[in-house]
């Protein structure tokens, strides 16, 4: 597996002296969804802004596809093209009252010819399912639709890596499923590397291939979701918790002596786990 983006000992200190990141080392594999978990103020957003060159690291290195990233002024546009960020609140990102024009912004900034910009805007709208909203003003869109428009605005830049800051925050359950389905289709059909932050633990086993736990600007834990759930204390120390189903597995194992593993955190996995333990018990 090739590594799409990697940080080594990444640090960032804000102007007021706040050490937001301290020696963060993580890697996101190409075509995978990597989760960054952590409570509020863990440094997730700061990390993302460093990866896209809006903030320049105070220390450490970032590697894109194996090559060291330069934060020199002339190299920033290239970095921002390759690493796109979708911000948590779409109202922070959508600056134009015209949906079409807002989506075109990133592509126009790349200096592409008009025909290519149009092709990309159309493709991004089709992919995010908002083609029918082109004639609507931004302020007439629902929160869900704004979120999609914000994703489309990053897609037009055709980034290799898409970073999403709390992509499911503030959405209703169906909205959450829709966004996650969209992310899955991006990964599957475009092979896009996705990095997302969340504290909705129930989504982690469903959508993340690998995850990092961040706390106070440091990496406090990492692993595949299954591995992480086997060490619930790491999550609990960091303002996180087990997914509900993994928690159920934990209780079944501890209180009822059922031989199930909390690594089984999805409905399918825990069902198999319970059936297995049940059959073993009845034998």
């Amino acid at each position: 597996m090739s590594v799409a983006i990697e940080t080594r000992g990444l640090s960032y200190v804000y102007e007021d002296g706040t050490r937001a990141l301290e020696g963060v080392s993580l890697r996101a594999e190409r075509g995978k969804v990597t989760g960054v978990l952590g409570g509020n103020g863990a440094g997730k957003s700061t990390l993302f802004l460093n990866l896209n060159g809006v903030l320049t690291p105070s220390g450490g290195e970032v590697f894109l596809a194996g090559k060291r990233v330069s934060y020199a002024r002339r190299d920033l546009p290239g970095l921002r093209r390759r690493v796109g960020i979708v911000f948590q609140d779409p109202d922070d990102q959508l600056f134009s009252a015209d949906v079409y024009r807002d989506i075109s912004f990133g592509a126009v900034n790349l200096g592409l010819p008009e025909g290519e910009v149009r092709r990309r805007v159309e493709a991004a709208m089709a992919r995010t399912g908002i083609s029918h909203l082109r004639d609507k003003p931004t302020h007439a869109l629902s929160y869900k639709q704004k979120k999609r428009a914000a994703i489309a605005g990053v897609l037009v830049m055709e980034p290799e890596i898409m970073i999403l800051d709390e992509p499911t925050a503030g959405l209703d359950p169906q909205g959450v499923s829709e966004i996650l389905r969209l992310l899955r289709s991006l990964r599957e059909s475009l092979g896009m590397t996705i990095l997302l932050s969340t504290h909705d633990m129930d989504l982690v086993p469903l959508y993340c291939d690998y995850a990092y736990v961040l706390r106070g600007g440091r990496v406090a834990g990492q692993g595949t979701p299954g591995e992480l759930f086997l060490r619930p204390e790491v999550l609990r120390e960091n303002q996180l918790r087990l997914p509900r189903l993994a928690h159920l597995m934990e209780i079944l194992a501890r209180e009822d002596g059922l031989a199930v593993s909390p690594g089984a955190a999805t409905i399918g996995a825990s069902r198999r786990e319970i059936l297995r333990a049940y059959q073993e018990g009845s034998r």
Partner: peptide
């Protein structure tokens, strides 16, 4: 910040 990250 959001504009900058889209190449503003």
């Amino acid at each position: 910040t959001a504009l900058e990250s889209r190449g503003y």
